[in-house]
Each structure stands twice: as C-alpha cells, then as structure tokens.
Simulated scan of single mutants.
Amino acid sequence: MSTAGQRVKEVRKRRGLSQRELADASGVSLSSIRKLEQGERETARLETLRKLAHALRVPTMRLAGGPNPEDAGADTVDRWAAVREALVRPPVAPGLDDEPPTVSGIRDSLREAAPLFAHDQYTALAALLPSLLRDAEALGSEGRAVRVRLLQLAGWLMVQTRQFSAAETALERALDDSADRMEGAATVNTLCWLLLRQGELGKAYDLAVKWADETEPRVSRATPAELSTWGWMLLRVSAAAVRNSQPGDAEDALRFATAAAVALGREHAPNNDFLRTFGPTTVKLKAAENAGVIDRPDMVLRIAERVPVFSLKPTSNNRNRHLLDVADAYAKTGEYAEAFGRLEQIRSDSPEWLPNQRYARDVLGRVVRGRRTLTADMRTMADVVGLPL
C-alpha cells in the first residue's frame, strides 16, 4: 500500500507541479513536502493533507488513502444500459405496422456491423446492439444460429468493458443455444476469459481443460477450424495456469498450442470470426503475455522481436494487448519513453478500447512513478486511461 508521501508525489507530478510550486500553492512548507515525499515522515496531519489536496484539486482522502474501485465506471454503465436491458428482457411483440424481423435481415445487419466489433467502436455498438438483440430474440427457433453469434459478441463486449454480470448472462445464453461442440467452444473461449478477468483462476482452468479435452482432434486429420478451436482452449488453459502459479501446466498447454499452430501453418479465423483467429503468431503473443505475468520483461521483449506486430490489425484481441505487454516490459526495465510510445500507438489505433484497460493504467502508473516530471502528453494520457489521482 502506498504511503501518503507517495500519493502526494504521484498527484503532484500528474499536475505538472514542482515541489516548490506545490508549496507556494498550498501554503505547506517546502521542507514538509520534501520530507513527506522522501519517506522521512510516514504521514501528515489531516489539515496538511487538506491544504495539499486543495492545491492539487483532489479529495483529501485521496492523499490520506481511500478505495480504488475496479468495477466499470459510471460512464460505461450508462453507455451500455440499453444493451444490458436487451439481454435480460423478453422480446417485444411487433406492432401491427411493424415489419417483423427476419433471419436474413439480422444476419446482414450483423455482417455489416462486423467492422465495428473488430475495431472496438463502442459508441456505435452501444447504439446498434439493443435493437439487434431484441429482433434476434423475436425470431424464435429459426433464428438460433444468428442469435448465438450475436450473444457471443455481446458477451465479449461486456467482458471488455468490465460488466461481468451482463457478460455471464449473454455467454450462458449463447452456450445453452449452441447446436454443436464447435459453436459451444467459441462461447467457452470467451467464458474462460471472463473468469480470468474476474480472478476465478481455478474455474477458468477447469473449464478450459474440460473443453480442450472435448475438442482435441486427431492432428493429422484435423480441419483448420478444429485446430483453431483446440488451440484456443489450450491457450486459455495456459493463461489460467500461469496466473495460478502452475508453471508446468502452463508450459505444457503452450507447447500443445504451439503444435496446433505449427500444424495449421498460418493464422486462421474460423468462419471469418476474428475472435477465434489462431496460428503461430497468436501463440507467440500469448507466450509474451505469459512472460509478463511471471514478471520476465526481458523475455517479453525477446519474444516481441519475433512477432510481426505491424502486420496485425489493431484490434484488442491481438496487437493492442501485445503492445500493452511490451509497454509494461519497457516500463519495468526503466525505458519509459518506449513504454509511453506504445501507449500512444494504441490510443491512436483504438481510442475507445484503451480507456477500458486496467492494464494500461498499471503501465502508465509505472511510467509516472519512474519519471521525475511528466510531459503534457503524459498528463493527458493519465486522464484518458483514468489513472486515479
């Protein structure tokens, strides 16, 4: 847990103030601020913290120590309210003058919306999804396949934006409606990710192992879709294991995933599903992610040298997450300019994705703590990713 002095220092740098400027603005002596930030004093009187907080334009308890909520922010909750409602409410019967929805019409709409999902266009999707979800539900049994796909995508978006209860609702509904093992595995892939983000490592591991066993093909006869599906289950096994201090299991799963990728020979997206793109590059990305989890920034950067990152589309499922891993590795090794450059690259490519990433806040926090002063761009980025003051 950070001390009051560390919190004062972090906020002061975010505001672009020197210790002298903070002393002048707050009326607290320069000597007191220096001692507090250098740890010579573990705390300060509440009145001193209040003066500092007033000058820094933050609540006093931010400096004294307070909660740091991890749930979706109020803006996110408001933006997706209509989507969450559409996921849980029964379909509305069309009026007499309404054209009833059709399977082909919803399928075409979903196809046209594919670029919005692939490029994290959250504002547009929040407006589009409620009516699509309601219409798909109104189709009944004949709309099962398109409804499953829509629920898979909606669940994925809810995980992205940390609305975990809504994500579970969408994904469980999609799994219940799945017609076969492959369709079910596409949903389970995201369910495992949901469990990982919730910290349910044991559940994620058990679910991924179960489905890896159920989808394991005979490699010599496997189709690209089968190899991709099995490979992703193995990557989820590895991700859960490495986070749960099971390094042997993580390495074994990654080795099998590598074998599936080698057999596939290239990146493949079953049925053009960007969420399930799998191949040699994807395995390298996840190997780098695992290295970051075990705090091996040197290994992350070494793997990154072999990843053709600029040939990848800037979506949250591949390049953006990898760039965060690389940024984190640079920050851990003290190369703060390189780390910040990766964050700027992500912001340029996916401006609506970045603010939802707690990982980005962690990385920028390392940069902020490591630098004596912050540039104007760094202070702006801190506001973009919601780094707490």
Rank of each mutant, 00 (worst) to 15 (best):
C192L: 03
R347G: 05
D78K: 15
M299L: 15
V368Y: 04
V242L: 02
V283W: 00
Y330R: 00
R243K: 14
P314W: 13
L324T: 03
A166Y: 00
D325A: 11
R372V: 12
L301Y: 08
Y205R: 06
T333Q: 13
G73R: 11
E216V: 00
Q152L: 14
P297I: 12
A174P: 01
P351W: 06
E226D: 11
E267R: 09
R361C: 13
N272A: 09
L354E: 03
S165E: 11
A291H: 05
D97Y: 07
G292E: 01
G248L: 12
N244E: 13
R107W: 05
G105C: 03
V326M: 09
V103C: 00
Q198E: 15
M381Q: 01
A23S: 15
F278P: 00
A145W: 01
A82C: 04
L234M: 07
R221Y: 03
A327S: 15
A170E: 01
R371W: 02
S316R: 08
I346P: 00
A55N: 08
S178L: 01
A212N: 02
R149H: 06
N317I: 07
I294Y: 08
L49N: 00
M61Y: 04
F310G: 04
L30C: 04
L195S: 07
D298W: 13
I33E: 04
A225Q: 11
D98A: 14
P247L: 14
R181D: 07
D176T: 13
A360K: 07
P217G: 06
Q198G: 02
H268F: 15
T223G: 08
R107N: 05
L175F: 10
G105F: 02
E183C: 06
D71S: 12
A118C: 09
S165L: 11
E137R: 11
Y330W: 14
P115C: 08
